[in-house]
Design a protein around this nucleic acid. Structure first.
Lengths: 339, 339
DNA sequence: ATCTCCCTTGGGAGCGCTCCCAACACGTCG
DNA sequence: CGACGTGTTGGGAGCGCTCCCAAGGGAGAT
């Protein structure tokens, strides 16, 4: 019943523990015939390396940390994280690394978890997501000396290694596309203003809209309710926008409902663009024009980067493919284009 | 730079390693004054227990395993898992347990991961989700002797400890409610037929519909596309249903779009019920009547159960609150009720 | 035949911690 | 005053593994 150890193998094979260790780790120091015999016995009695004993010898923990600090209902609604995790996993599990996950309440909690995991030798590195402006986690991680990959823009990553995708190009592409369709009043319903990528998109949006009539930006918490409320407010204003760009798809869907509720036709009276595509965008009528990104691939890149970093190489930053506009039925020329 | 160990503390405090160990673990064997002195020193030099060394002494790994085997795009779309994980986490992190997550391709992969983690001493227990009919994972887990909590119906859990919620009552409640509204032809667009809870709902649905006209059941893979296709087929049939119950909300939303696309008014021409509520259900027009469940609480119960099991107690099964019907705008009397 | 040299092998220290055991001091009781 | 119990302490084995070191043995060179 007890788990077999290398001593058991050594006894059965009539060799020493040392020889078994070399054989099992593919290291030189044992003859090929002995190696084969040891491997056969190990396999037969179902031996597994005890990760604790390995870790004790200064070896890797073979695990990576990831903490998320958004409330349950928002996490559940955001396909982003689950897709990201799938992508991270694909790469990590191929290298036999595990993912340690913890959902925490705030950044202090997140910092504490990382310090504990790292201090206890449970993880070899970590990912940082949802980068804030002046993020308190960055200096702490820098000081810890732990390998960390920031999934977000280099501007906020300090000396940590960033994996990112350009936020500017998609904004420009979207605004240019809407302008080409004839829109002059484009609004943006954005996410949390504290997040780095929100500020980047905001800035780029303001730049891209220079020369257009009026391009308001409303910040929300990403929930459908706030998206709906912001949409209602925008559509009730004296000069309502003819197009709205949303920072996630749940808000875009909520906005679509609000528009239809208010008797506006989409896209005739209002064009809608969602940032980050998901099955959701394609399931509503009309299907939403969206900024598509391969999120699992993004996660895989981040994971590969972190594993390289742990292996001792000093990778630079990695710029992933930017999101690209995927026009569907929710965008078109405004009916009042030539007013 | 090196991490401080209890030997360092012992040296500084002028006591033995043993005393330090007792002091830090709150065990008897040291005087209160010595304990305080040791604690102060430990805190000062920033000592953290090395989890590997602890685990080596037969102690807990303080980690729980969870594997998911759905493709990335479905995982991303299912709020269920993220909410469940949040709930698990809330309980686990309160007891300083970590969650080890891995996304795998199939049940064989899932079994392999569990065997590895358990064999390597990385986890103290695991959760099993998405129980299949004749699930191959169950006998393997039983044989491993690892503490496992099955998040799903007892009927498929074998000797493992189940945490579950009644699938029958919500089905009956829904069908009764629709019947009371005057519906006689109720359809069900279900999830994967291999899942235990799908079969339970199927059976209960057939029972509850006895005496009604015709109550077809269509099985899908939970995606919006399949939900839309199934809906289109049902609504195109000679005698179309006046109400459809969907097994998740993404399909319900897709179904709503299809209905509106086909010129049917909801709820006048078609009533829609979604199983498992989420912000999504409330964001579309009309908002969807849904079977609401507190998923984070469900996860928390499962976690508490597993921790008890690991602590050696022998808990029975735990029946969580069943989902309850939450009527919104997508259900009403059929216009042709009195035909 | 003797001496190197290198490949193979056994032995064992040590990683940080837990926990058992023996030693010790002190106080109480016969 | 000595025997004993209680509370505190130091010492050290052992968890499973890695890796260094030294010893053994065979082949090739002299």
């Amino acid at each position: 019943m007890k788990r077999p150890t290398i001593s058991d193998i050594a006894r059965q094979a009539g060799v020493s523990k040392g020889a078994v260790s070399y054989a099992l780790n593919g290291q030189p120091g044992v003859s090929e015939s002995t190696r084969q015999r040891i491997l056969a016995i190990a396999d037969e009695i179902g031996w597994r390396p005890n990760s604790a004993a390995r870790a004790l010898n200064g070896a890797r923990a073979n695990a990576i940390g990831l903490t998320l600090c958004r409330p349950a209902r928002i996490l559940g609604m955001e396909p982003f994280f689950m897709e990201l995790i799938s992508g991270l996993e694909a790469e990590l599990s191929a290298r036999d690394f595990a993912l340690m996950l913890q959902v925490v309440g705030d950044h202090d909690g997140e910092i504490a978890v990382h310090q504990r995991w790292w201090g206890e030798g449970r993880i070899d590195g970590a990912f940082l997501v949802d980068l804030h402006v002046d993020d308190p986690r960055v200096p702490v991680m820098e000081e810890l000396g732990m390998p960390v990959v920031v999934i977000g823009d280099p501007s906020g990553a300090g000396t940590l290694v960033p994996v990112w995708s350009d936020e500017g190009a998609p904004v420009r592409e979207t605004v240019d596309y809407l302008t080409a369709l004839g829109h002059r009043r484009i609004a943006r319903i954005a996410g949390l203003p504290k997040l780095v990528h929100t500020t980047l998109r905001d800035r780029e949006f303001a730049l891209a809209c220079a020369g257009l009539d009026d391009c308001p930006v409303v910040h929300t918490d990403y929930t459908g309710e706030e998206g709906a409320r912001a949409t209602r407010r925008l559509l009730s204003s004296r000069v309502r926008p003819t197009a709205i760009v949303y920072d996630n798809d749940i808000m875009a869907v909520a906005g679509l409902s609000v528009a239809q509720e208010m008797g506006l036709a989409v896209p005739a009276d209002l064009s809608i663009v969602a940032w980050d595509d998901s099955p959701l965008s394609q399931v509503v009528r009309p299907p939403l024009t969206a900024l598509t990104r391969d999120i699992p691939a993004y996660g895989a890149h981040a994971a590969r980067m972190l594993l390289d970093l742990i292996d001792g190489s000093e990778p630079g930053s990695f710029e992933d493919r930017a999101a690209s506009l995927n026009p569907r039925g929710s965008t078109g020329p405004p009916v009042s284009a030539g007013h």
